[in-house]
Every structure is written in C-alpha cells, then in structure tokens.
Design a binder for these strands. Sequence first.
DNA 1: TTTAGTGTATTAAGTTGCTTAATACACTTG
DNA 2: CAAGTGTATTAAGCAACTTAATACACTAAA
Lengths: 123, 123
Amino acid sequence: MIILDYRDKRPIYEQIVEKLEHLIVGGALEPDAKMPSVRSLGMELSVNPNTIQRAYMQLEQDGYLYTVSGRGSFVAPEKEWRDSRKGKLLARWEILTRQVKEAGVPREELRQHLDNCYEEAKE
Amino acid sequence: MIILDYRDKRPIYEQIVEKLEHLIVGGALEPDAKMPSVRSLGMELSVNPNTIQRAYMQLEQDGYLYTVSGRGSFVAPEKEWRDSRKGKLLARWEILTRQVKEAGVPREELRQHLDNCYEEAKE
DNA sequence: TTTAGTGTATTAAGTTGCTTAATACACTTG
DNA sequence: CAAGTGTATTAAGCAACTTAATACACTAAA
C-alpha cells in the first residue's frame, strides 16, 4: 500500500501524508472507505502508531479524512478536499512559475512544457 | 541587505542561501563582486559565522560563488549558475504542473494563469 | 456484560539536525 | 608582522522527530 523512502530527509509522517493524499486524490481510496487503524498501519510500515496518528491528524486537518469515535478514520467526501487542494497547488504553482520566468525561460517555451505535461496521458 | 524571518520553519542557512540567490540572479550582486566575509555578514545578521559559512558552502556547491584563498568569496560568472538554475527550476515546475493537472485544473485555465504570471510586469 | 478494536493523550527517552561558541590553521594583503 | 580572508574542529544547547509504554473513552460484536 505504501513504501517509505528512508533516504528522504523529510519526517516520516510527512511522507505518509503525501502518499495517502495521492491514494485518495487518485481514487485508490474512495470516499467513506475505512482507513487502516493507526496500529495496523504502524505495524505494516514498521512505524510507531504515534507517527501514523500524526499523519492522520494532518490529513484530517486538510479535509482528507474524518473520524468516528470508537469506529475509526474514513476517507472524506471529495468536496471536502477538492477545492482547497486545487487552491493550494495553484498558489504554489504561480510562485514557482514566476521564479521560472525570472530564471529567463520565455513564455513560449514554458507554454510548450505545459502542453507536454498535459499531452503525456493522451495515449 | 538581508532580513531573516524567524517565523520561517526552515533552517537559517537555507533562508540565507535563498536570499543571496535572489540577489545574485536579480543582478543586485554582479559577477566577481566581493561577498561580505562570513564574520561580517554573521555580525550583520546576528548569526554565527559558522552558519554563514554553511550558506556559502551551499552557494559555492550550486555554482553561485567562488572562493579565493585568503581573499574571500565572490559572485561567480553568470554562466556558472544560469543553466543549472534554469534546469532545476524547470524540473520542479513540471512535477508541480502535473500535480496541478491531477488536481483537476484544465489546460486552458492553467494557460491563463501562466499568461497572468508573464503579464504582470508589463506595466 | 465482557471483549476486542477504534482514536486520542501523556510521559519519558533516544536520535538527529541546526545553531552557537571558542579556537585554531593556512592563506593573502598592506 | 598584523589584520582579514575561508575553513575545520570540538563541545554544548536546543528543537523536532520518533519510539515506547501506558492509559482512557468510545463502539461493535460475542
């Protein structure tokens, strides 16, 4: 389900958040699906349950999960995270785009790169 | 010359690297200009010279500075960093662009945002 | 009602990275 | 020689991350 990269310098809980985000956004984990318990996922990843807990807290904070007392954590409905996710990514994208522009990449060249990114999956 | 943000969670030396990069890329520090000594800049920023040293090491690693033994550190000629900088930024940009695409932003909308980024300085 | 499984909270300990501090050294310039 | 460079080393303190061992309130099923 998830493979951790120990060469990655980021904290483990951040990696877990990122991987689970992708699984949710990509549809591998559907809304209202039950997430593995903090204990079982901790077991599976050879990581302390506290660390999983921290990742789940972050995911709930960002609207990807909701929790039912005594039952467990579940994938939140898409509307809970779709818009805020788009907004955050776009904000980061615009900052980075301006940096790329500052680095001397002309608009036409960047439009070409943009098209490449959207072209790829067309096969 | 530089103002540190103590609310920023990144290490100080990383902030310094980023600020100096911008000063160099933006032309405020011209090629072959002498950088402040690790001791004087440490004094100015109320930071240990070791921390400045670490930032300078990073900048030299990335091709922004060169060092002459006993004389000091200097801004590297533009060709030393121009291309690698562009390449690194573009690589990050493409990854982020694909994530934005995955988040459901249609190509046309993103092209519009791209144009906005390039439009702004036209006034 | 008991039992097992949830998320959550707390406390202590160990590790790692960042930062400071105090030196020391080889080098260049005046 | 003296002052100013980058560089290296060692020790110490601090904060964040992680593990570990518990404990608690809740829910579901036996």
